[in-house]
Amino acid sequence: MSSGSSGAQDWRAVASLNPNGERLLCVGESSSQVRAAYTGAWGEVIRDEDRPNVRTISLQRWTGQFWSGQWEHQMYLAVPTTRTGKGIGGEATDVEEEEDEEALEGTNGKAKKK
């Protein structure tokens, strides 16, 4: 998807459902942008009856040219616990631990911390 110009949507969050299937939660220009947006998209994209079937949420990055590339898994994100993507007490679910962010930075050297 990257064409070398600004505004490329090179990151996405995808929910994997049992027994099979996927739902695109959101796309963005950076991993930080996607991590900040996916919990909000959770309540809009994932139907109530599908929420118990969500196995994982994958943070993925597009690699290659926009006409010839593929999505590559970078890390798993926390599955929100409620319909709105909010955790107990109304706070957004913490999707990353410090060590996960450091691991992501090691994979591409370009990831930005929140």
Score class of each variant (00 low, 15 high):
S68H: 12
W71H: 09
I57P: 10
R61W: 04
S58T: 12
R51F: 04
E44G: 01
V45S: 01
P52L: 09
Y38S: 09
Y76S: 13
E44Y: 05
Y38L: 05
H73F: 05
G43P: 00
D48L: 12
T56H: 11
W71F: 15
Y76H: 15
A41D: 05
R55L: 11
R47L: 07
P52S: 03
W71E: 11
E44H: 01
L59W: 04
Q60I: 01
F66L: 15
V54L: 10
G43I: 02
W42C: 07
R55I: 11
Q74F: 13
I46W: 00
A37F: 03
P52I: 03
Q65V: 12
Q74C: 14
N53S: 03
I46R: 00
S68I: 02
A37D: 08
R55Q: 14
E49Y: 07
E72D: 10
Q74I: 14
V54R: 09
G69I: 15
F66Q: 13
Y38M: 05
T56R: 15
Q65L: 14
N53A: 02
Q65F: 14
G69V: 10
G40A: 09
D48F: 13
Q65C: 11
V45F: 05
W71V: 13
R61A: 04
W42N: 04
Q70H: 08
P52M: 06
M75L: 06
W67C: 12
E44D: 09
W67V: 12
G40K: 08
A41Q: 05
E44F: 04
S58N: 14
I57E: 08
L59P: 02
E49L: 07
T39L: 08
E49N: 12
E44A: 08
F66E: 15
R47F: 02
T63I: 15
D48M: 09
I46D: 02
Q60D: 07
T39E: 10
Y38P: 10
V54D: 08
S58V: 09
H73D: 06
R61M: 05
E72F: 07
Q74K: 15
W71Y: 15
M75P: 00
F66R: 14
Q74G: 06
G64P: 05
D50L: 05
F66H: 15
Q70V: 08
R55N: 12
E49Q: 11
W71C: 12
R61P: 02
A41R: 01
G69A: 14
W62E: 13
S68W: 14
Q65E: 15
I57A: 04
Q70T: 07
R61C: 04
I57Q: 05
A41F: 02
N53Y: 00
P52V: 07
R51Y: 05
G64R: 01
G40I: 00
W62R: 13
E49V: 13
I46F: 01
G40C: 10
D50C: 00
